[in-house]
Structures are given as structure tokens and as C-alpha cells.
Amino acid sequence: MTAPLPGGTPLLELRGVSAGYGPYRALFDVSLEVAEASTVALLGPNGAGKTTVARLCSGLVRPTSGRVVFAGAEITGLPPWRIARAGVSHAPEGRSVFASLTVEENLALELASLGRRGMASALARAYDLFPQLSGRRRQLAGTLSGGEQRMLMLARVLAHPPRLLVVDELSLGLAPVVLEQVYATLHTVRDAGTSMLVIEQHASHALALADRVVVLDKGTVMYAGPTAELGDLRTRFLG
């Protein structure tokens, strides 16, 4: 689909990024990378700045300083739709669905670029993934239950896996059974070559999926390295 990057170039790179909301600062000089075909778990306590990192990756928040590089090209300050077309898919936390559109319209919006045939197969994949949704194609997304809305949001990004998938607080509001199923899907998607940045409170699931882990606290990077060497940080922050 896309040309492989020259050896050693990470797929996504944050270089010394600071960011915030109005007068409130959330991140201070954060650097992290996601190598191609790898998965990074981003962990940390509440208020550490994890969600802000996710928003930086997709362009929802612009850095006040520092650079964001994706696939060797600078994407700092680009509008979210350009970054999305470049191959970054961001599944925001919470019930991020279009409440006034139907289930199928929610999916179609994301998959419009695939053409009619591509869309049909992607839709089939989405309903395969979450059979519960297939009976509700014409229902308004706002009338789904909380868990179903999360499913719909994940179906949107998983039906057509991008180059880089950024998932924020995946486990929030999902029943344990569904969560197992979603993580099984993520494993398949990862094995098919999609890179991932997974933000989680449930550290164990994310760590099982990831090669590397980054721990954030109070807007700075506390630890970055292989999952295996996390050591006592794990107990300190992640229970």
C-alpha cells in the first residue's frame, strides 16, 4: 500500500512537544516514537497527559512547541483531516459517535474514501466484528447503549485498519467479554501490520499487546522502553 520507510525511521515521532489548553499546560517537552509495525502502550495516572498525546497525534491539539513527524513527513499543525488521510486513525475516549446519524451512516462517513465496493466489504467486516451492531444499522447512534456506542466507534476505525491506530481508553465502558473480543481483534490488526499507540487504564491488556511502553506523569515522560523492563513502575502507577 505504502512504501516502507528507510530503516530505522519511526512511523510516528513526537520531538520535544509541549501542548496545553488555553492558559493550562498539559505536556512539557515530551518525546516518544512508534516504530513501524509495532505497538506502544501509553500508560500513566489520571491527568498525566495521555489523552493530549493522542490528540496531538491526530492534530486535534496543536503543539505550542516541538514537532510531530509521521512517516518521515512533518505533520505539526496540519488540520486533523489531512493527518487522517495520511493514515492516522484516532479513536477518541468516551462515546465519540455522531448521535444524530444512524449506525450505518456513522460507518459510511469514515469509509467514504474506499469506493462503493471497498465500503461494502469494510461494512461487512465491521458487522462481523460486532454482530450486535448489524441488527441496528438504521438506528440513530445516539440511542445505542454506552457499550454499543463504544463498539460503533471501534468498528469505525477497525473496519479499515489505518497505518497508525491511536486508541484512547479502550476499555472504558466495555463489558469484560466484549473487551476480550476487542483485544483479540487488535492482536489480529497488529499482526496484519498496523502500528498502534494504545492508551489504557487496564495496563495488563495493553502490555500484553505492546512491544514498548511509555509512562507519562504530570505531562512528562517517566519511562520509555521495552515492556519487559517496566519493573517496579508498574506497581507504582498501574496497580
Partner: peptide, 24 residues
């Protein structure tokens, strides 16, 4: 598809952009 995008932008321009659509 254009109508769908218009309705989506009204609800959340940001989420529409995340789907790769130029909300502006």
C-alpha cells in the same frame, strides 16, 4: 455522501475531520 458530511459536520466538526473530511 455530501449530505451525510454536512449533517456530520453540524454535530462535530472535529470528529468529521478525524474521518478524513475537510470540515471547513
Amino acid at each position: 455522501a455530501a449530505g451525510l458530511r454536512m449533517r456530520a459536520v453540524v454535530e462535530s466538526p472535529r470528529m468529521t475531520e478525524l474521518a478524513g473530511v475537510n470540515a471547513n
